[in-house]
């Protein structure tokens, strides 16, 4: 193994550690939401600083490799992809933190019937599953799995599209639900962004492994 290969191996391990942390943040956001656990929500907010620290470290490490090793070909594509994945993961970390802050701000437990009505459970589960799939695709350089993310993201898009009408219906049926319903709608919107970020990550994995650019190419995606 060359020194550059060692460096790239270490970067990959670092990305996976960040990924595990981000995934755990989203899972905790789900638990905190459904069990109205404010302590867990506070923990998410505190741990977001670690996600940010990962982002800064990965940026710096990639910068060092560019400066010291002048990577080319697959190594260059890997590092370019990592820089973007790093940013996408940090944004997902922000989303988990945003959800946690809603829980902390909220006056009391949410009305659980809304979770079913507006499909929040499915949205959370699918977002977590997509995030896990992209991690596996990155770890195993599996572009077939990466491509499957595009299809899965459509489920999140569908729920998100229907959420507005469902929220309106819930509010119409019981005006007291207005606060909770708006929180749930906002969380749906945030989880939809998890799907978008994961889709971006999947595109980067395909770029790195196959040297194909799918960005802004809806047909290819």
């Amino acid at each position: 193994m060359t020194q550059l290969e060692h460096e790239i191996h270490d970067i990959k391990a670092e990305v996976l550690s960040m990924w595990n942390l981000v995934e755990s943040q989203v899972k905790k956001a789900r638990t905190a939401m459904f069990h109205f656990d404010r302590d867990l929500a506070r923990e998410i907010v505190v741990k977001e600083k670690r996600v940010n620290a990962f982002e800064l470290k990965l940026d710096r490490d990639c910068e060092n490799i560019f400066a010291l090793y002048c990577p080319v070909a697959v190594d260059l594509r890997f590092l370019l992809a990592v820089l973007k994945i790093n940013n996408n993961l940090e944004r997902i970390g922000d989303i988990a933190e945003g959800i946690a802050k809603y829980i902390i701000e909220s006056h009391g437990d949410f009305n659980h019937t809304l979770f079913e009505e507006i499909e929040l459970v499915t949205m959370f589960d699918d977002a977590i599953s997509i995030l896990a799939d992209t991690r596996i695709a990155f770890e195993k350089e599996d572009t077939i799995l990466a491509r499957s993310i595009f299809k899965k993201d459509e489920v999140l898009d569908r729920i998100n599209l229907g959420a507005m009408q469902k929220t309106a219906n819930c509010i119409k049926s019981d005006i007291n639900l207005v606060n909770d319903a708006l929180y749930v709608l906002s969380i749906i919107r945030k989880l939809e962004r998890v799907g978008d970020q994961s889709k971006n990550i999947a595109e980067e994995i395909i770029f790195y492994v196959e040297a194909k650019v799918l960005k802004h190419n809806d047909e290819a995606s």
């Binding site: 070909a73 697959v74 260059l76 594509r77 040297a211």
Partner: peptide, 11 residues
């Protein structure tokens, strides 16, 4: 060549 070489030997 330096971003996406076609041949494994080049890479």
């Amino acid at each position: 060549m330096f971003t996406n070489p076609k041949d494994t030997r080049t890479q």
